[in-house]
Design a binder for these strands. Structure first.
Lengths: 195, 195
DNA sequence: TGAAATAACGGAGAACTCTCCGCTTAGTCA
DNA sequence: TGACTAAGCGGAGAGTTCTCCGTTATTTCA
């Protein structure tokens, strides 16, 4: 997953970084900012932007790469400190919270689920989920036939929920439903969700 | 929900019908057919098409309105013939099947979940779900706190699954997970899903 | 029936996405 | 260090989406 960043000619790499910098600001200010305006602001042609990020989704994923990596890193750390099921619950809460912060951009990420050019960023996320699920299966906390990709699909849904009070309640209900659907017993207090 | 069809001037209504006719064919042939090409084929200006259907989603929902209505009508008929939970399961299977047939268009429908101008078509679907869920709650088959809109969000997800063999397996797994999440006991044979 | 009122039309045009391909330049090797 | 060779650039342009608003048609009602 670093292949896209290494083996790049110096100028290409500089352009890539510059585009990401500009895009981070532009998208934060307005999630619908046009790609051509981002290209112009970064001082590159549209072709250059599209070569590096073939779609809006790819660019967004690039921009939030850091946050996604952090989420991936979090998984083993939680597993080390908590029983599997609890670790998994906490991780999902964090994932939901991340989506809540990025609402308006989240649907783009979600739409990207099945695109190949996204798999590179998406893959590590799947691995993190799988790792946690395997731990939970090992401890008998969830059904063994539940699939990591299935689950990530469901979790991606959480990112499409508006970040208001009603949305937070819905997130809580859906997470509860999903965990129950995976066969988890009601061990966690439903109010233990950190804000 | 008929307000959009009544109170229309004669020419407007004729245009609306013609657009739907043309769009049905054009979208069946190519789900990415441009809206301007559809407008041209229907012999109306772009403005007219957009006034009737403010977005691609609205047009698609209009085109599949018949099928959606059929799905809505199906709910009470199933409830009359089967125990609540079984009726609900059968209905969800039909919903999944519908999505499978319309793959490529389904994501558009899914994306429209929170748009107001879609609520008219979306509303009856929610009502159908609520009706079945209430029956299931009445018979104690599912948890009382599960929400109809939550569930429809989850079911909408099924429409985004590719209609191949792997996709069908995933659909089955997800439906099983969702029903388990709602608190349903494993009553239905997992192979009872009609193709 | 003949205006007046207003619902609806339709296409020009602004803004955008994405591709194509001739040109430029970084890396390489004798 | 001077060319050679791809990798990379960038902008023109084709195709879209969606809006705006002057024009046209349908109702209504006197």
């Amino acid at each position: 997953m670093t292949a896209e960043e290494e083996n790049l000619r110096a100028d290409a790499r500089a352009n890539r970084d510059r585009i990401l910098d500009v895009a981070r600001e532009a998208l934060a200010a307005d999630p619908t900012a046009s790609l051509s305006s981002i290209a112009k602001a970064a001082g590159v042609g549209a072709g250059t932007l599209y070569r590096h990020f073939p779609s809006r989704e790819a660019l967004v994923l690039g921009v939030y790469r850091t946050e996604i990596d952090a989420l991936v890193d979090l998984a083993p750390r939680l597993l080390a400190k908590h029983p599997p099921l609890e670790a998994f619950r906490l991780w999902c809460d964090r994932l939901a919270k991340f989506g809540r912060m990025k609402y308006g951009i989240a649907d783009i990420v979600h739409a990207a689920t099945s695109e190949q050019n996204i798999q590179e960023t998406y893959g590590p996320l799947i691995n993190a989920v799988r790792e946690m699920m395997d731990a939970c299966k090992g401890s008998g906390d969830i059904h063994p036939e539940v699939d990591a990709e299935d689950l990530l699909m469901l979790l991606g849904l959480l990112w499409r929920i508006p970040p208001n009070a009603a949305g937070q309640a819905r997130t809580k209900r859906l997470l509860a439903l999903i965990f129950r659907g995976m066969g988890a017993k009601n061990t966690a207090a439903p109010d233990a969700v950190p804000s």
